[in-house]
Amino acid sequence: MPRHLLMRLEAPLIAFGGETIDKFGVIRDFPALSMVTGLLANALGYRREESGLHERLQSRLLIGARLDSDVQRLTDFQTAQLGKDDLGWTTWGTPEGRRGGPDAYSSPHLRYRDYHASLNVLVALRLEPAAETPTLDDLAQALDRPARPLFIGRKSCLPSRRVFAGWQDATNILEALKAVPFPESPIRLRLQWPDGEGVLAGDRVLDLCDERNWSSGVHGGWRPVREGVFDAPGGAT
């Protein structure tokens, strides 16, 4: 029976990023495959320019998630006054200024960022092929002794508890998510998992664009996932 690694993503603020349009940074309810890849790669110590390592890790990952708390969203309004000599840090290594000429610096830089408040998410994952490096054991060790600080979606979203949450043997991702003890009080739990990794009564199939091209830095392609709901009987987490 396949072994699955469990992660507990819990923090005062979490950002499962979606499509960013202009100055609006929206979020999704479930963690993207690219976000989990980035979190694990950060723990392993991969450098951003090592796109081949990121691509291979992403291609091997099978992930599913269970929301163990209600979704509460908030929008953070962010503003910064930049002078003409101020440059912003970017993930691609080139300092960024403001477009629009000298008049662009007469007003502040504005943007809106959505966050999940006090979210508690269980993630189950495995790697295929399992014997290739890094293995699940390598990932577990890296999560407990990360090469760099871990964050959940954005650098301000620091985990409030241990990310590595143990192991679960199960036939597929869905069964792994269902086998882990549920929250203490009964709750209708929402789940998302890859198509082909189990079926839940009343679930639906969606096409999700959450794979990153780590060379170009953009998202593309589609993968089928299932989303469903079931009533947890209540138990200890």
Score class of each variant (00 low, 15 high):
109 H>N: 10
181 P>D: 09
176 A>T: 07
148 R>N: 11
142 A>R: 12
138 D>I: 09
140 A>V: 12
119 L>P: 03
100 G>A: 07
108 P>A: 08
160 S>R: 09
112 Y>E: 14
131 A>P: 01
78 Q>V: 10
186 P>R: 11
147 A>N: 13
141 Q>D: 14
173 I>V: 15
160 S>D: 01
184 E>M: 08
133 T>M: 10
59 S>M: 05
180 V>R: 09
184 E>A: 15
90 T>N: 03
173 I>Y: 06
91 T>S: 13
186 P>S: 08
119 L>F: 06
156 S>E: 13
88 G>H: 02
166 G>C: 02
186 P>K: 10
135 T>Y: 10
111 R>A: 10
162 R>Y: 01
118 S>V: 07
134 P>I: 13
144 D>Q: 15
121 V>N: 02
98 R>E: 04
150 L>D: 02
189 L>E: 11
62 L>M: 14
191 L>A: 08
63 I>S: 01
78 Q>C: 12
164 F>W: 06
153 G>M: 01
99 R>I: 07
111 R>G: 10
144 D>K: 13
110 L>V: 07
93 G>I: 03
114 D>N: 13
165 A>I: 02
108 P>M: 03
81 Q>P: 02
133 T>Q: 14
184 E>N: 10
89 W>S: 08
185 S>M: 03
97 G>Y: 04
176 A>P: 02
97 G>C: 04
63 I>C: 11
105 Y>S: 06
119 L>V: 02
178 K>I: 11
101 G>V: 03
117 A>L: 15
63 I>G: 01
168 Q>C: 13
114 D>E: 15
64 G>H: 04
184 E>K: 12
185 S>V: 07
135 T>V: 13
140 A>C: 08
77 F>W: 15
178 K>W: 04
96 E>W: 08
154 R>P: 00
110 L>I: 07
60 R>M: 10
84 K>P: 05
70 D>P: 07
116 H>M: 14
155 K>R: 14
55 E>G: 01
124 A>P: 11
178 K>D: 03
95 P>M: 00
62 L>C: 14
187 I>T: 01
191 L>H: 05
61 L>Y: 10
72 Q>E: 11
99 R>Q: 09
58 Q>M: 14
153 G>S: 05
159 P>Q: 04
77 F>S: 15
188 R>S: 09
64 G>Y: 11
74 L>D: 04
92 W>H: 07
125 L>G: 07
69 S>I: 11
180 V>E: 04
182 F>C: 05
118 S>G: 04
190 R>S: 11
156 S>W: 00
134 P>R: 07
150 L>M: 11
172 N>H: 14
166 G>Y: 07
154 R>V: 00
160 S>Q: 05
124 A>R: 09
88 G>S: 10
81 Q>W: 11
119 L>S: 02
157 C>D: 04
129 P>R: 07
113 R>V: 13
147 A>V: 09
113 R>D: 08
164 F>L: 05
140 A>D: 04
163 V>L: 11
86 D>V: 09
164 F>Q: 00
111 R>H: 12
62 L>Q: 15
139 L>W: 07
162 R>F: 00
92 W>Y: 09
186 P>N: 08
122 L>Y: 09
129 P>D: 05
116 H>N: 07
